[in-house]
Design a protein around this nucleic acid. Structure first.
Lengths: 144, 144
DNA sequence: ACTTTTGTTGATAAACTCACTTTACTTTAT
DNA sequence: ATAAAGTAAAGTGAGTTTATCAACAAAAGT
């Protein structure tokens, strides 16, 4: 049940971009310095976020990164799915990346107890993370 | 945000023990066969559960494993913590195994946004898993 | 006593993932 | 041209996951 460093750094990076959204761009090393993220690892993460369409960048001397969408249009759930994969604790309860369990004795039959509980866990996690936007995140609001 | 095979197998094994609780004991290979768990891996898991005081075992010809506590006294949260460690997505929001983040720019200062959200996620997960007992699990009830 | 059936323990290991690092570009502004 | 920036892919070392194997220890039945 763990969040990877990759996702954590990704969220922190997007937080910084949210704080300057509409005002200026931020360069890799600015983000890295402000959030204590290893520079080269951060590059990788920003690149993934770029491919996913969350940020855009400009090369060259006065380049840097900017958010491509409005902060209230990006949820933490989206970000974590991009960087870490599905939120669900187990493939057979994922809604965005369902995978049937190959060797489960309950597979395709009556409903599996594990599937049942983990389904509610998934819904709880997604319920929070998919309703919590970058805007909420930056504001530090306790609930989405 | 993933559940390990170890925990999944552990839950499935305890499920079988719950189903026969008070009636009979179950041997390793019975559990393994019923839930499609690799036998030697299962041994390891049962041993961990034994050390944690959830099950006991008897050797010899009519030996096997039994639950040591009542099924409604064991929660899925306990089991997963034993086999997988803390439920919290990140060390600094764990209640059973807190660890302060070493290199977070918000460490010890004002409350960290990441910590804030992940705290609510932890509470949601623990809220489900710590109120869902093996008895509920075996009954297949949709809510704990 | 002896043998069989079982559980216990520790060592080993393949496969994979995580968290970076390195290297080699390409683009842009001046 | 050149220096500052981002792009891209591959490499790496440590650790975790998911097992497997073999030797050992205890209990039951004969």
């Amino acid at each position: 049940m763990k969040l990877s460093k990759k996702s954590e750094y990704g969220l922190r990076a997007l937080l910084e971009l949210t704080l300057v959204h509409g005002k200026t761009t931020l360069q890799r090393h600015d983000i890295a310095a402000r959030q204590h993220i290893p520079l080269e690892f951060l590059e990788q993460i920003l690149l993934t976020l770029k491919r996913a369409g969350l940020v855009s960048s400009r090369r060259g001397v006065n380049g840097g990164y900017v958010l491509i969408k409005q902060p209230n249009e990006i949820t933490l759930g989206q970000v974590i799915r991009i960087l870490d994969g599905p939120l669900a604790p187990i493939g057979c309860v994922s809604k965005t990346a369902y995978q049937k369990c190959s060797d489960c004795p309950y597979a395709n039959k009556t409903r599996c107890p594990v599937q049942q509980v983990m389904g509610t866990v998934r819904d709880a996690i997604a319920g929070i993370l998919d309703h919590y936007s970058l805007a909420d995140f930056a504001a530090g609001s306790p609930k989405g």
